[in-house]
Amino acid sequence: EADAERVRELLSDLDELHRRKYLLTDISIFMARWEEAVARRANKVEDKKGRFWEGRFHCQKLLDTASILAATIYVELNPLLANIVELPEYSQYTSLVKRLKLVHLASGHSMEHLMDSDKLEEQAMLKEDVENQSSPKLVTNVLVCEQFLPFGRHKYLKVLDYVSRRKRLGKSSTTATAEKLLVRLGVEPDRWRKTASTFEESYRLFAGSPELLSQTAVEKKKRCLHGMRTARYVYHP
């Protein structure tokens, strides 16, 4: 329940009340306030004090495409790895479901088809041009943030599939497509795949190739950065 005294206080100055309400129409401000409120309550429940976020959230700077891809897939597969869902596409709060909807709308076919058929990928790619002219409104936010990777959503989904169920896929075309793309990004596919499921432990503050990590270390005047061992193992020399 809201503290009655603070409610009264707010109601005594209606201009201030409406100013605060108006501020929340900015999505960034709303998210910041909301997360802060959630974190405060979580701190209270877990009886934590001191620093506000208490290590519950932290930033990782992603230095190249391979690390952006690994981090994105790590987030998308999080509910699966935590055993909250049986299949990644069942996750309620990841962008994956929206991406799949886009593919679905673009190709006019169901998800099962997409995951298993090569012909469909070609068809869908042909249709991608058409789709660009009439973007489905339903999933516009994903459309906006989709261009952060230098390849299309079909390849992205293949890589995601490759990470999430490699064993079952065996030597399929999905494996071939994903591996080819990953090699192009400068990583050893099978080794990279493991970091996509353990991303937070694999790297700390910075993630990327050994060269980029060394460069960052020099810039930050650090001798070495956590994650260098992983990077040397994952990236092609």
Partner: peptide, 14 residues
């Protein structure tokens, strides 16, 4: 939503 409800929600959020 009336002002009282808005105030309550703001207090809960902040």
């Amino acid at each position: 939503m009336d002002d009282v409800e808005i105030a309550k929600r703001l207090v809960r959020l902040y």
